[in-house]
Nucleic acid binder design. Structure first.
Lengths: 116, 116
DNA sequence: CAAATTACTGTGGTTGTCAAAGTAATTTGG
DNA sequence: CCAAATTACTTTGACAACCACAGTAATTTG
């Protein structure tokens, strides 16, 4: 992984919701999608991924069901809920907002005020 | 605070280094600068701030000295070190990089690949 | 002279993440 | 043909950053 854990922290749920918003998927596939979307710059730890699935399921942002694979390993599929889709939209809006504030905080000049 | 804690997490040290890079400062003043730079959108918890000071001092990114206030409460001033300045530059570069990856991860389309 | 403000510190708890290990099936390569 | 790699999911234990809350102590304001 080329990107620090703490910079991604807080985005994991949104990342997963974005992927599931494009269609049902399962753990291994989601992990692959993350590597693809980040151009191999970010590799989400498995434990983190499955912890996030449980957190999102508990929060009713996703639901899960076992696939009926006749061959190959069993797969647990996850599906985004309407509530999850709404939370995805809010998270994207918050990110647009937060991006500017963070940039301001780490590069901003105190004497020139908040917006320079 | 209008911005989620987890989105800021990992930026605290960089925020402090940016402020100290513009001149020595002390706890209370740094907290005020953060409110100013974020347009009152982010209020860093005191405990978090002083924890960060200790972390940065231990990592030799900042040094501290007591001011010789003849009146007013005592103030512990913090000064950025050369090493701290270098780490600030790296952190800013990493942010420019991370910003795009995060955006890609939370809005990117899987079927269109990493860069659309 | 009480209340607000300035200024720093410590304690205890929550949360998200990760490393490591485990289970189990399938696929690939020598 | 069998060992190794890959697919796929799960659990455990630990850590680091952050926060709420509480405390100390001085000064300033009403």
């Amino acid at each position: 992984m080329a990107i620090s854990k703490d910079l991604i922290r807080g985005h994991t749920d949104t990342i997963i919701l974005n992927i599931l918003n494009q269609g049902d998927s399962y753990g291994y596939q989601v992990a692959k999608s993350i590597r693809l979307l980040s151009d191999q710059q970010y590799d989400l730890n498995e434990a983190t991924l499955y912890t996030a699935f449980r957190r999102l399921e508990k929060g009713d942002d996703i639901t899960s069901y076992w696939g009926d694979e006749t061959q190959g390993a069993r797969r647990k599929y996850y599906k985004i809920t309407t509530s999850g889709q709404q939370h995805l939209v809010s998270a994207l809006q918050e990110w647009e907002f937060a991006k500017d504030i963070i940039s301001s905080l780490i590069t901003g000049n105190i004497n020139e005020g908040a917006s320079l």
